[in-house]
Design a protein around this nucleic acid. Structure first.
Lengths: 199, 199
DNA sequence: GTCTATATGGCGATAGAC
DNA sequence: GTCTATCGCCATATAGAC
């Protein structure tokens, strides 16, 4: 096979080609942020040169877009599937479960999408993507949401990636992460607005 | 008083000196991330030159540290005050209330502290700061926490800044933000681990 | 499809005048 | 305490050989 068999001894296998670039970029973007990651770092982590990266992507922004694309498609799927429920509460629950699964399974990609300052602006400047988030929020709040409900949705979406990324939760396996995130989503978004219990 | 009365017509008053630098840096760091903000941008927003910024701070990292310092002191205060409660649940509640107030009142500073990839590494590399967060987490979980409880704390801390920063919550006033965040904290951290209600 | 080499500009940081 | 001017480096991006 390939004649580029460098057999790197680093922790992560260096993969050639477009998918290797995207894998390296996703990992670096999640760890350092988009602005904190240079194309040189991406090239080094991919085992190729900077110029080779530019053969696959015309600009750094296109690398970012390619990293985010699968997550944006997943949100489209969640909005479509959850939106098919008649009961608004069932729709909210379906969206919570879909988001929790994506956040755990593709945590690095989703950390870039939801926790990077540069990506926030990128999304805000692309009406298609911004509208997608608006529809997602509406599914999570239910129709005609109160300010308090919008606030809980905002906190849930902002906190969604925390458990999967936090070193203090590194010992928790993926299924338990999904279940815990879903539980948090139910508590924040599906509890009646009155009684706040104990103490 | 001052002889530097430039009377800028920009949206935000340009303030001279150290406090103006920190105000501009905090705002820019929160909006663009630390890595996405240059000293030239901070200088321009402060109405001085880059060299003048370097008169007040020896390095960019020191600007970051000065921006974060009040928030880290606030966490110390929260840990001290909340830790004085004998009842672990009262301690958790006090920490939630203190965090919600800080997150709303100083939302830009806290967004830098809690949501910036570069700052995460900065905190991880300073054992004093890292220990502080460990103590804060322990107050929020209570003693001998289960994995599920640690997960809820992680999601709450990660989501804390969401409502105060999210444009979709821009219409909510500060007191309502504080109350909503406290409500979310109670639901995530003070609910018994069993019954998850309705539907 | 990957390389070497390079263009151009902005970065963090410094020197020294006022 | 702020300025102008500059250093050395690395950023994104391009040209052209193989």
């Amino acid at each position: 096979m390939g004649d580029d068999a460098v057999m790197s001894s680093t922790a992560e296998r260096i993969r050639p080609g477009r998918s290797g670039i995207l894998a390296a970029a996703t990992r670096l973007f999640a760890a350092q942020g988009v602005s904190g990651t240079s194309l040189q770092q991406i090239a080094d982590a991919s085992g190729i040169t900077k110029a080779a990266v530019y053969h696959h992507f015309p600009t750094k922004e296109e690398v970012v877009a390619a990293v985010l694309a699968p997550a944006l498609e997943a949100i489209q799927g969640i909005v479509r599937t959850a939106g098919a429920h008649q009961d608004p509460r069932a729709a909210t629950e379906a969206a919570i479960i879909g988001l929790a699964d994506q956040a755990v399974t593709h945590r690095q990609r989703w950390a870039v999408l939801l926790q990077d300052a540069a990506v926030e602006e990128y999304v805000r400047n692309h009406p298609d993507h911004d509208d997608l988030f608006t529809r997602l929020r509406l599914l999570l709040t239910g129709p005609d949401p109160s300010p308090g409900t919008r606030l809980q949705v905002s906190l849930f979406l902002s906190g969604l990636l925390g458990p999967a990324q936090d070193p203090s939760c590194a010992d928790i396996d993926d299924d338990a992460l999904r279940a815990g995130i879903v539980q948090a989503g139910r508590r924040l978004l599906l509890l009646d607005d009155d009684a706040d219990d104990d103490a």
